Each structure stands twice: as C-alpha cells, then as structure tokens.
Amino acid sequence: MKTALVGDIGGTNARFALWRDQRIEQIRVIPTADHARPELAILAYLSEVDQPLKALEAVCLACAGPVGGDLFRFTNNHWQLSREAFCRELGVKELLLINDFTAMALGMTRLHDGERITVCDGEPEPGRPRLVIGPGTGLGVAGLLPLSGGGWRALPGEGGHICLPVGSEREAAIWAHLHRSLGHVNAEAVLSGPGLLTLYRACCALDGQQVALDSPAAITKAALAGDAYAAAVLEQFCRWLGRIVGDNVLTLGARGGVYIVGGVVPRFAEMFLRSGFSEALREKGQMSRYFDRLPVWLVTAPYPGLEGAGVALQPLLEGA
C-alpha cells in the first residue's frame, strides 16, 4: 500500500495527514506561526505520527494563493516554498502543489452523510458547474466542473479579491468608510474571519458605537448570546456573502449548486440559516428568477481540503 502526505495550508493553520488506500489518516493541525518554513512543519508532523520520511511516495500540498513556477509565497502567512529545494531537503520524488480551493472543491466530491446542511432547497441541474466558496482566514472561491466521461475538474481562482459589491445605502456607507482606509475594497476585506472584525469596527465608527469586541470569535459569541449590535453586524456579513455568492453563480453559471465552506460560517450555522443570506443571493433584478430551485449547502465536514488534496494526488500515485 502506497503512503503519501497531504497538506491543507491556510493563513493560520496547516493541516496534515497521511493518504493511504484513498483515505486520510493521522490528521494533525499545526499553527503556521509555530514553524519558520513548511518543511520544518512537515518534519515535526512526521515525527509526531512516527512516519519515516523515506516511506513517503509523494506529497500534495494545497496552498492559499495562486500556484505556478518554482517559488510559491503563501498569501496569508509568512511561509514560502521552492519546489526544487523542498524535494531536495526532504528527499521527496513527487511534489504536487495545488491551490487550496482546488483541494476544497475536490473535497466536495468526498462528502459523507451528515456533512452538509441545506440552506436553500433545490435540485442540481445535471451537467452544470457548482460553486465552492467560503470565508476563513481569507475568502476562497472555486468552480467544480462535471466531466463528460464522469468525475470532476476543479477550477481555481482568486475570487476573494474581486471588488466588494454594494447593494444598499448602508453598504455604500460602510464601503466608503473602508475605502478611505484601504483603497481597493475587495470581498475578503469583509467576508473572512479578520474581515468580520473589520466590518464590526467600521459599523461602530459609522454608528458612534464603542468598539467593545476585539476578535471575530468575540463578535460571534456576543451575537449568539443575544447582543443586538453584534447580531446586526453578523446579519450584514451574511447579506454580503449572499451578494458575492449570487455574483459568482451568475458568472460561472453554477446551476449545479453552491457549497458554503470554510471555518467561519459553521460557527453560527443556525443564525446563518435565519439570516438574509438567501434574500441577498437573489437580489439580481431581472435575473432573480435564475436562483429558483438553486440548491445551496453549508458544509460541516471537518477536513474537506485534506480529502481534496488526496483526490488530486491519487492519479499521480496510480501512475507511479
């Protein structure tokens, strides 16, 4: 049985696992701040799970940011990686680098029962693309395209950096406030973990409110505990996510459905289901009916990025 290592590396955490017999095993989550380089984090992981480096057939790392060339700089952490130096230092024959949302999209093909919650009822249109999108340390966006012979192809992009849309006077005021400090206001400036805190602070500044909360977790906790102002900020977050999802559905033609992923939204899943997300999703004027019967799911699977990295790596292992 061949053994490979798969990694899903975001801005805050690196998740590693062994890939054996098309399954992930020995999962560990390592803060990226704990190690200077990804090679050191991998060596620490292998030591912890008692896996000899020489037994690895290949490595697949799903990385936040555009992948290409020898040198890769991670978008939201201090790591960088040279493919050539990585393979030389670790003695790895095969290194596959893929975008983290390529892995996330492929992970949707491995979901099990109970790992997604229905947000909007509907039926996937056969043969149509699906959208995979979600806030975490940043905002990830990818397409999932059905292949004529069966299977799926992930279509990665950098959709988190598109312009933040404005759909109301309130949103225009928030956007203007952010523009004064940020210049270009991209989607993940608001629709991410750090973005939730940015949104809260902007709302406080506009409303003359004291900034009483100092982290995304604190905002979510306060909203769930009944704090009306924190709940209103979270509602605005959900509505803006709806607008962005709707824009991407129209652009991709994603009548196959939408997967909401990432670590942020599942923390307030019940509030999200009651929010104005689905209303904002459909606010597209004459194209509003395009969203009739469009299925939207909130993904609660614990490690879809690792699963997707394994899916991406499997053809290479089978050809080795």
Rank of each mutant, 00 (worst) to 15 (best):
V67E: 13
L197V: 10
L182N: 12
A225Y: 02
L97N: 12
P165E: 04
G208T: 04
A14S: 15
V311Q: 06
V185W: 05
V211C: 14
H78N: 14
N248Y: 09
Y200W: 06
E94T: 13
Q51K: 01
H35Y: 13
L234S: 01
V311D: 05
V249C: 01
A218T: 05
P135R: 03
V67Q: 13
Q209L: 00
A222C: 09
R293L: 14
G157I: 04
R23Q: 15
A309M: 04
I98N: 12
I174L: 10
K93H: 09
D292C: 09
R23E: 15
A154Q: 09
P266K: 04
A64G: 13
I174N: 08
G7A: 11
P295K: 07
A232Y: 01
R267E: 13
V233G: 04
A173N: 02
L131Y: 08
G160Q: 07
I244P: 12
E84R: 08
I244K: 06
G183R: 12
L234C: 10
E57L: 03
H177D: 14
L139R: 06
I117G: 09
L313T: 05
I174P: 06
A254C: 08
G246K: 00
A85R: 03
G143F: 01
L306R: 09
A320S: 14
Q209P: 02
